[in-house]
């Protein structure tokens, strides 16, 4: 259950970063950057099925908890092996590791709730569902069907 990103909808406002900071004591586990002034992309933990960070973690601070890649700060020594084992570079370390926890305890991750452009979703099909809805609306309009 990672956070799915529809890059075509992201407006690069960084609301997700701010929302993440609000939940995680001033630290964001999401990073947005604008590419060539044409597109912006937020990157965050993918909660990989075969999570390489959990394979590198020697103290079991990182583990799979269902679809979530969970992190137990009490077991972490800050060795930084997880940061080096993440293919996407989305585990940060200083005294301990920092990574997305999908806002454990909240109903939905705060970045998803906050995104004003609906670029973030927990539904992998969100982008294609919206496209189908738009296509259906276009057909309905062409046939003169009132909504």
């Amino acid at each position: 259950m990672p956070v799915y990103v529809d890059v075509s909808r992201c407006i690069g406002c960084r609301s997700c970063e701010v929302a993440c900071k609000r939940v995680h004591s001033g630290r964001s586990y999401m990073e947005v950057k604008v590419i060539d002034s044409k597109a912006s992309v937020p990157v965050t933990c993918h909660h990989c099925e075969e999570a390489t960070c959990t394979m590198a973690c020697f103290s079991q601070a990182l583990s799979k908890d269902g679809e979530r890649t969970a992190f137990d700060i009490h077991k972490c020594t800050g060795c930084s092996l997880c940061a080096l084992a993440c293919p996407f570079g989305v585990v940060w370390t200083d005294k301990w590791a920092h990574k997305c926890d999908l806002c454990k305890g909240l109903e939905s991750p705060m970045c998803v709730v906050t995104c004003p452009a609906q670029a973030l979703s927990l539904d992998p099909d969100a982008a294609s569902k919206r496209a189908r809805t738009r296509a259906a609306a276009a057909v309905a309009l062409a046939q003169g069907v009132k909504r």
Binding site: V41, V43, F88
Partner: peptide, 12 residues
């Protein structure tokens, strides 16, 4: 890790 993030973003 920083370049990994950039590459990931670039691809997306």
């Amino acid at each position: 890790p920083m370049c990994r993030r950039d590459l990931e973003r670039e691809r997306a």
